[in-house]
């Protein structure tokens, strides 16, 4: 199961002096849904373009299916389906014709066109010109194109962009099913909640740098609840707790502790009150993934 299917080493892309992607080491194993998360402009699309051989890295290497992308680009692309950024659509063609054009290029069986139309629920509008499609329909067409060849690795760059909530839900359910057929997925997004709901593995990129890469569980562990204590004299309370070897973190008027069991909470309360510090608030606070994300990126509010 632990077969590495995608691996980059020190992957870097510079535009003039600006470094868009900075020494990234991506690791994706077979059957994983890898959520590639980062705010707009973080370098997700640039990374994905390099993975597809559309642009050349300034530095670093890419290995996919154990082969070097530089040397075996076409063999590797044979097993990849992709959707990059805003969807491609030939407006003068119908949805079906759009897929047919790709089918001919890749020399795939004819029945696949109807199959993928069904999967992304475009069968009803398949014979309409795509210039009349809504953004969501174009996006679904792009996903259909990516899936047409039944790829071993599916690369989707912000696939839910422009979709309504039910469309997002549909795509999410669809993506979650893919590993059962042995597919691996790299899906990028700037929305943590989305990645949280489908990914098994997460890589967080910010300003071109990878700041976190691990399983989604490890990311969620960072979400352990904390105890927030409001006291009259924060400095004094902190001293008292320190004497008793209790680690607290003073932030403004509040002390933060890492345990929240009822017995622990009442003990803290009693210690402080007996030492003459008045406690006006004891609160269990759960960090949202957004908080964690902001903590990691240090870019509050940029999402």
């Amino acid at each position: 199961m632990n077969e590495q299917i995608l691996m980059t080493n020190d992957l870097t892309k510079k535009y003039m002096k600006h470094t868009s992607v900075d020494g990234i080491n991506l690791r994706i194993e077979r059957g994983q849904i890898y959520g590639f998360l980062g705010p707009n402009g973080a370098g997700k699309t640039t990374t994905i373009r390099m993975l597809l051989g559309l642009i050349k890295p300034t530095q670093g290497t890419i290995k996919i299916f154990g082969q070097s992308l530089k040397k075996n680009r076409l063999q590797i692309l044979q097993r990849i389906g992709s959707l990059v950024e805003s969807p491609t659509y030939y407006g003068n063609l119908t949805g079906r014709e759009n897929l047919e054009a790709v089918r001919r290029l890749r020399d795939l069986p004819e029945k696949r066109v109807n199959e993928v139309l069904e999967i992304v629920r475009l069968t009803k509008v398949a014979n309409r010109l795509t210039k009349e499609y809504s953004l969501g329909m174009k996006q679904r067409l792009g996903i259909a194109v990516a899936m047409l060849s039944n790829p071993d690795l599916l690369i989707l760059d912000e696939p839910t962009n422009g979709l309504d909530p039910s469309g997002i839900q549909e795509i999410r359910e669809l993506i979650k099913e893919l590993p059962k057929a042995g597919m691996s997925v790299l899906v990028s997004s700037h929305m943590l909640s989305e990645i949280d709901q489908m990914a098994t593995q997460v890589g967080i990129i910010n300003n071109g740098k990878m700041i976190f890469q691990d399983s989604i569980e490890r990311l969620r562990q960072k979400r352990k609840p904390l105890l927030k204590v409001g006291v009259s004299d924060g400095m004094k309370a902190n001293e008292i707790l320190k004497e008793r070897k209790l680690k607290a973190n003073l932030q403004g008027d509040f002390l933060w502790l890492s345990q929240t069991e009822p017995a622990f909470v009442s003990e803290i309360n009693s210690i402080l009150v007996h030492a003459g510090v008045s406690v006006y608030r004891l609160e269990e606070v759960t960090k949202t993934l957004e908080d964690i994300f902001l903590e990691l990126t240090g870019t509050e509010g940029s999402l």
Partner: peptide
């Protein structure tokens, strides 16, 4: 222009074709 207008280069050139 058919490819330019369709935003098609990134799709067409990520196919396994030289």
């Amino acid at each position: 222009n058919i490819e330019h207008q369709a935003n098609g280069w990134k799709q067409t050139l990520s196919m396994p074709i030289s």
